[in-house]
């Protein structure tokens, strides 16, 4: 295992640990917090993977994620806040 593969492995373990918080989380906001943390970690993993395999075009996926994961989180948060009205 090279250094970067080890780093990818460690981030995978972090994702599994945050997933425990998503599953256990007493309220829906804890789950949303876990979703947010996992989305940041997935972006890191995509960047590491693109450096390991030397395929720079994979970075586009990370760019799309950085923009769209945000929209999903904010939509769910506003949906819960307004008790069901999306506007």
């Amino acid at each position: 295992m090279t250094f970067l593969e080890t780093a990818l492995f460690v981030i995978a373990i972090y994702i599994a640990l945050v997933l425990v918080r998503v599953i256990l989380g007493p309220t829906i906001w804890d789950r949303l917090l876990g979703l947010n943390a996992i989305s940041a970690k997935i972006i890191m993993s995509i960047v590491i993977f693109s450096i390991i395999t030397e395929q720079p075009y994979l970075l586009d996926v990370a760019l799309v994620y950085a923009l769209l994961g945000f929209i999903g989180t904010v939509l769910i948060a506003r949906f819960i806040e307004k008790k069901g009205d999306i506007s």
Binding site: T27, W29, L32, L33, N36, A40, I43, V47, S50, I51, P56, L59, D60, A62, L63, A66, L67, G69, F70, T73, V74, A77, R78, I80, E81, K83
Partner: peptide, 30 residues
């Protein structure tokens, strides 16, 4: 590729605190 990584960093630096703020605001208002 380095420029793209910097662009991703800039995006996440803007959006990650915003989404955390949206969650906290939603929890507080509810």
């Amino acid at each position: 590729a380095a420029m793209k990584i910097l662009l991703i960093t800039l995006m996440v630096m803007i959006t990650n605190p915003l989404s955390t703020h949206a969650i906290a605001r939603s929890a507080f208002l509810s």
